[in-house]
Each structure stands twice: as C-alpha cells, then as structure tokens.
Design a protein around this nucleic acid. Sequence first.
RNA 1: GGCCCGUUCGUCUAGGGGUUAGGACGUAGCCCUCUCAAGGCUAAAACACGAGUUCAAUUCUCGUACGGGCUACCA
Length: 527
Amino acid sequence: MTIRVRFAPSPTGYLHIGAARTALFNWLYARKLRAAGRDAEFLLRIEDTDLQRSTEESTRSIFEGLDWLGLDYDRERVVFQSDNADKHRAAALSLIEAGKAYRDFTPKAERADSNIKQEIAARARHASAEGTNHRANPFRDLPLEESDRRAAAGEPFAVRLKVAPAGRSRFEDAVYGEQARDYSEIEDLVLLRSDGHPLYNLSVVCDDIEMKITDVIRGQDHLTNTHKQILIYEALGAPIPRFAHLPLILAPGGKKLSKRVHGEIVSLTTYRDAGFVAAAFRNYLALLGWSTTGVPSPAHVTTGNSEVQGDERVGELMTLGEMVDNFSLDRIHRNPAIFNFDSNNPKRWTDDKAVWMNAEYIRSFLLFDELRPLVKAELRANKLWREEYDEDESGWFEKTVELIRQRFYTLKDFSGQGRAYFSDDFDFDEAAVRKNLLKEPRLKELLPALAERLEKVEPFDAVKTEEALREFAEEQNVKAGLLINASRTMLTGQSVGPSMFEVFDVIGRERSAQRLRSELPWADAAP
RNA sequence: GGCCCGUUCGUCUAGGGGUUAGGACGUAGCCCUCUCAAGGCUAAAACACGAGUUCAAUUCUCGUACGGGCUACCA
C-alpha cells in the first residue's frame, strides 16, 4: 500500500515557521519510508476555503518556502481545497440522506469578528456551568420528509453531524499516545454553513479521503478536533488514517507564536531574507521537538571508520540524508519548544543556536558547489557581483570567499562586512578608525611609507608581506601590531577580520597600496 | 468553566527507580594570537511543588501550581 502524507496550509499570510516544520516532518516521514523501500508520497494541499483571508501571494509564499527548504512535492497534484467545495457539499447532503446528519433550520447567530475567541470561550463557560446537552437541537430528530419539504421551500439551513448520544471516541496518536473523548463533549458539529459553504472539518476529511491520505501529521492544535474528524470518517464509511500531532513552537515566555503579536519573526521568508542558508534553518527547525540520540550516524558507517563506536551519537548538524535516516515519529516530544528571539536586541533578533548553525553551514559548505551560488546571489543583489568572478577571476573569488567565510554568520555578511573585498566603495567603522588609526599620529606618515615598502614585495603574498611589514616595523621602532591593525582598518574599514597578511594577499598589491595611502579616514576626524 | 496535553541548566535536549543528571547553543575564564572569529581546555547553570509507592524517586502514581491547545454556521 502506498503511504501518503500531506502538508495542508491555509494561504493566509506568510508561511509560518511552525507550518514549515510540519511540512519538514511530513516530508522526512515519507522519505524515510521510501528509503526503506516502501511507496510513500508527500503531497501538498492548499486549504483556501476561507475566501476572505486567502491570498494568491500567500499561496506563492508557501510554494517558495517549500522550494527554499528543499521539500519537493508533486507539482501536478497540488490540490486547492476550494476546487472541491461541490464534493464536500455533496458529501454532507449524502449524510442527510443516510440519516447521519440533519438540517438545522435555526437562524444563524451573528458574531462580532473582533474578539471572537473570548466570545466563544465565554459561551463555553456558560454552557459548561449550566451543563449543556449537545443533543438538544430541536431539528435533530425532525422527520426527513419534513426536513426535505422545508428545504425545498427555500428555508435556509445548516447541516450538522448527528453525533451519537453516548459513547467514546478513541484513537492512538503516534506522538501523544492513546486519546479518548466522550461523545457527550462533542457538539453536533456543523458540516455545511447555511450559505452552503463547507466547513473546515468536513473539507479536511473529504480531501484526505479523496487524496487517499494514510498518515496525518500536523500541529498539536488539531489534537482535540481529531475526534470530530474521526466521526466524519465513520459517517462517510471511510478508513481512518493514522494520526501524529506535533508539539507547537512557542514564543519566549511560553506564549503562542502569532503573527499579530510577534510579526515577521514567525515568517519563514524573514530567515531567508536575513541571509540564512536553507540547510541550516531546516536543520535547526528539525531539532525543535525532535532529537536523534543514540542512532548511529550512517555517514560514519559509510566512511568505514572502524574507530566509530556503535553508540556514537549523531551530531546536531545533520545533512538531509542523515535527517531522513534518523527520523522517527516516536522520538518526537509532547512538550512544546520555545523559539528564542528578541526584537529589541539586534544581536539576539533570533535564536542563537539557529545563527550558530548558519555559521557552521557557511564554514563547512562545499565552496564551489554549495556556497558559491549563494554568495553570488547575495553579491548580485547588492550590485557587487562581477562576471569575471565566474571567468578569469574565479580562482581569486573562491580564495577570497574561503578567507572571509570563516567568521561570517549569515549570507548578508558577504555584502556587508565583506564589501571591501569586492568594491573600493566601502564604509569605515568609526570605532575602528578611532582605535586603530587616530590614537597614533605617526601612522599618517607610517602608512604611506608602508605602502611604498609593500609595493616592492615580490611575490606579493602572505609570507612576503608579513616579512616586509615586520621588518619595516622594526626599522621604525613600532610594534608590528600597530601597523597590522591600522592596515586592517585602512584596507577593510574594520577592526576585525582575517589574518592581515591573507587580506593583503587577496586585496592585492595595487589596491592595498592605494588604500594605505588613502586620506579618507583622516580627513575631518579629530584625534 | 469543561475536555485534552505538557513541565530536566536561560534555550534546544539526553537519560531514566541507585548517575559526580550527559551534550549542544549562549554566558564567563584560560590557551592560541596581528584584531575578530574558529579551535582546545575549564567554569557557572536544571529534574516546578506536595504527597504516595519503594530499601531507594528526577524517573512510577495521585494532587497542586504554572504553561499550552481545543471548546465557531474560522481554518
């Protein structure tokens, strides 16, 4: 039998990082099965039944987000839920015929959209205090003929599922274990609105049946509603899929991560636009609510390293392949994970570990195959890219990227901190100028002299420039560090960076000399 | 309010009746050093609380507190 899982986001707003993680886990689940020789598919369904809130832009951001994360799905088979509304409606109507649902002619209660959550909660409080009988609807046992007659006369009605008065719904959740809920706690849920619009629970079930979904992996916010959906599966006489609910991702303080209060921090595109490498962010997301302890790393096994012990842990840094190999639903937690960020602190704008992982990926990516295209895109977006980097300056380009990637955290750094390597038009960091240039007035004469000395160095490489600079420092009776740090600021505008002699090497003889003679930072600055 | 779920360093987590409660990120210190990273070493840092079971509970059970989810003619 083919195992089918699906990712079913609603296109309202951007792709939420929690949703992205749900997609990842579904994808991993399918891939894992496929690696084991089973038939498994990962499908995408856009739940665009809320016409007011669904946007095409949001649908696009879902596609883009999945592409960015490398989660591939069958494009030909993407389902738009709104296309199936007629089928959902027909299913509800068939349930009336079968006596498993009924028409409710009660006029629709109008609700204020503003604080609807509180209103619902308040209503529920009252209901529970007074002890509501969910089977008290006067239309529940209306004879079918009369119901048909009133409907035929044009009287508006909603369709409700006829939930049995007594009994208990049960299912085994792959993550949360045995789940049970009394029928008495479940209302006769509305399947079809009085305007004929099918509701979420009905649509999901109908589409999952039609798509032959065997395993539903989704957020924990759907855990309790699963009982209602099972009731619909049963009424429709369809097989019930396996369910697995994922713990939610929370904001610092344990609050729900929401667009309204947390803004763009919940959007996947924010991370892409901030210079995250997809592989790194994907890796970080995978570790929120899931861990791999104790599973030997196949990567180690295939290297044939006999030193590796059997109980060796898989590191937290995993390739997609390793993630697939190690993935298992039963290692998913039941407790929610907190995603750290601080919008008031630029240094801590997002989770430290995510940033660290990104730096790890930037450092360890294959220079040519993996990192180069990303740096190219970043430079291009900032008008720093030159076609020569792909042609006769290709060697220089890679050498430079290799040098500067070592201390970069995001792709943005290549066009930011790294700007001086690709352009003569770069800014000087004020603190760096003060610390490395203005403190020593002699530098104004020393640096041009150093430039003159370096111009004669042959070959102009890290070893020879170091010899020349140290010799010059000794002659002038100054510390080498003074000249090194001053040079760093003159050449890159900064006080931090790679080994200065490597910098001389990649910046080159002419540009180095020219920048050492530059008047720029001295101009109007007072010591 | 009702129902459901959860709670191990600041965060992500390992573990599980007897452990010096392990790792990672972050933080601090030291080494290295031309700066900053990286790397190496070290440190501070956790079993929410109360009962019960047991020779023994962080681990099992119950309760409390706290947090989360659901409770719509939203998705």
